[in-house]
Design a binder for these strands. Structure first.
Length: 202
DNA sequence: ACTACGATCCAA
DNA sequence: TGGATCGTAGTA
């Protein structure tokens, strides 16, 4: 399924904070098709539909918040709708959206954005590290609200993706709770990260 | 202070 | 399939 958006094809308002104040897995699925908007210092604007996500919850051993509040993952315990950006492998940053009510940890990892690239392996946003590198997202954006259109990074309402167009798989790159089917991506989209593992599908 | 490891990516 | 690369967290 190809998702091509023009600037005028999606509404100009952000998803409200109440959108994120729900069970993490539900938010993850509903984030597919929504529009991530990045406004750069020089005025350039990038916008693209979210096409791949993963869910992480407080009772999930693979979650940074598992085992209690630490400095790195502090925002995960705060109110929903804020960005959780962390640094990993000495090189990359990853972008999450905080979910669940204030005081309950939870987040959705944004793994891929449709950047409109044509053909395979052309996308610059088909992976959590790649998309943060391309969109210049780092820890200075940790904790900013994503429901506020005035921010340099926010999420606007896009298109609802039907269940039949969503692929469900295990999460990538983790060793704990590796059997949970908490990765969701739009079927047949060229910007979905290519390291898809289907071996553990039921 | 020292050590192990990680929600990745890319070359080979 | 393995190496790069360094912040984070746990242990001493």
């Amino acid at each position: 399924m190809s998702i091509a958006y023009k600037q005028d094809k999606f509404s100009d308002h952000c998803l409200p904070s109440s959108f994120y104040d729900r069970p993490t897995v539900d938010v993850a699925k509903d984030l597919l098709g929504q529009i991530l908007v990045r406004r750069f210092e020089d005025g350039r604007v990038f916008s693209g539909a979210i096409v791949e996500v993963e869910a992480y919850t407080a009772d999930d051993p693979a979650c940074h918040a598992f085992g209690g509040k630490k400095q790195r993952c502090e925002v995960m315990f705060g109110p929903p709708g804020f960005a959780y950006v962390y640094f990993i492998y000495g090189i990359y940053h990853c972008l999450n959206v905080v979910t669940e009510s204030d005081g309950i940890a939870g987040a959705v990892l944004i793994r891929a954005i449709d950047d409109g690239a044509l053909g395979r392996n052309q996308s610059k946003t088909d992976g959590p590290g790649k998309l943060c590198r391309y969109l210049e997202i780092d820890r200075t954006l940790n904790g900013i609200p994503l429901f506020d259109a005035k921010q340099v990074l926010c999420i606007k309402t896009g298109r609802k993706i039907e269940n039949k167009d969503i692929e469900v798989t295990t999460r990538i790159g983790i060793t704990k709770a590796a059997d949970r089917l908490w990765r969701f991506h739009v079927k047949d989209n060229h910007s979905v990260s290519r390291r898809t593992t289907y071996s553990k599908r039921p």
